[in-house]
Design a binder for these strands. Structure first.
Lengths: 187, 187
DNA sequence: TTGTGTTTTTGATGAATGTCAAAAGTTGAA
DNA sequence: TTCAACTTTTGACATTCATCAAAAACACAA
């Protein structure tokens, strides 16, 4: 839990009351590798903080699994579309390693927003960060070649390569596994 | 201004005080076609609401202009990365039509957040909406073919086609103008 | 150490899309 | 109405990447 609070204080520092409230409202979850945190079709009612471990979000397209994001230590994780709209998720969230997570329900979080302006501020700032992170990925996806995307990954988030299989990374980069293998052999 | 307030109340309804504060803090701007609202290299210190008109965000890559987003009526517009981080923008924002905008500086907005919890909430909710909208575009960019992306555009935002030149739309879809022209001739 | 299941690489081929160049179409000012 | 500038389409060809199939490498339990 301290890790979550430390991480949050990087975003926007919280008063003691708010920190205590968060402490009371997050619930610890320990899950083993390959477990599903969410199955497609379910409404994702929780926001998670990943203290330790790794997971992926993926959906099924023409019988293939498309991994479109990964989560690692210090990431907030949810199926954002489902969490925000309360519609059933189109994606699955699956553990890639045994992990420790902290969970809070949407209702509880909304209650905290009402009580603590500073917690809502925190969330506003978190969305800002996640927004620009996504924007960068979007621009890369649409306007860079497969090789450039792989080189960017090497530079910016090399830890992903060490913890995730090539097949998952290929679909994360939006290319086939064979193409990724060939790109790697040429660098 | 009423249009801005009406739009905002769709997101999250505001008390009278907060509405009046917004009224006082937004400034009206009228700009003619082709004007630049922002040039790359500048820090984007303002958030804009587009009451009437159209504009595009684009950046230069290998001597080509890449249009990566459009703004139309009722859109909040800024160079998000620059606005959030205060770093120089990599993109330009240019008017596609004569437009009416409402502008607020980051400092003023931050002041409103401090004073009015409900305005910060509004922003949190706005980011949620913009986040899932971007997420959808990202998935389309990475995992759909050019033809599918064009068909989605036809279905979901056909108004774009009526107001923007093909060259801009092609780069928005991440394809060459020639390919877009061929896709259209085949449908 | 062996064997089995999984992941990664390699090869051959085809489809989708980009690039360059030129033609055709459109628009708006004089 | 005409002309010049700009936008869109068409054609020929090159490049990138996906797909399918098979081989190689790796992981790890028996």
């Amino acid at each position: 839990m301290q890790r979550l609070l430390d991480h949050i204080n990087n975003y926007s520092s919280l008063g003691e009351d708010a920190q205590n409230a968060l402490n009371d409202c997050f619930e610890k979850i320990t899950l083993s590798k390959n477990t599903f945190l969410l199955n497609e079709g379910q409404v994702c009612r929780h926001l998670y903080f990943l203290e330790k471990g790794a997971l992926r979000g993926f959906y099924n397209l023409d019988g293939k699994e498309i991994t479109h994001w990964f989560g690692f230590e210090n990431d907030f994780v949810t199926s954002f579309h489902s969490f925000i709209t309360k519609e059933p998720a189109v994606e699955n969230i699956q553990l890639l390693e045994g992990s420790i997570l902290w969970s809070i329900s949407k209702e509880t979080l909304t209650g905290l927003f009402d009580q603590y302006h500073e917690i809502e501020r925190l969330m506003r700032i978190a969305y800002e960060k996640y927004y620009i992170r996504l924007e960068e990925r979007f621009v890369n996806a649409q306007f860079k070649t497969a090789t450039e995307r792989y080189e960017d990954l090497l530079q910016q988030t090399p830890h992903i390569l060490e913890r995730v299989s090539l097949g998952h990374i290929a679909s994360y980069l939006g290319i086939s596994q064979e193409t990724l293998s060939r790109i790697r052999s040429k660098l």
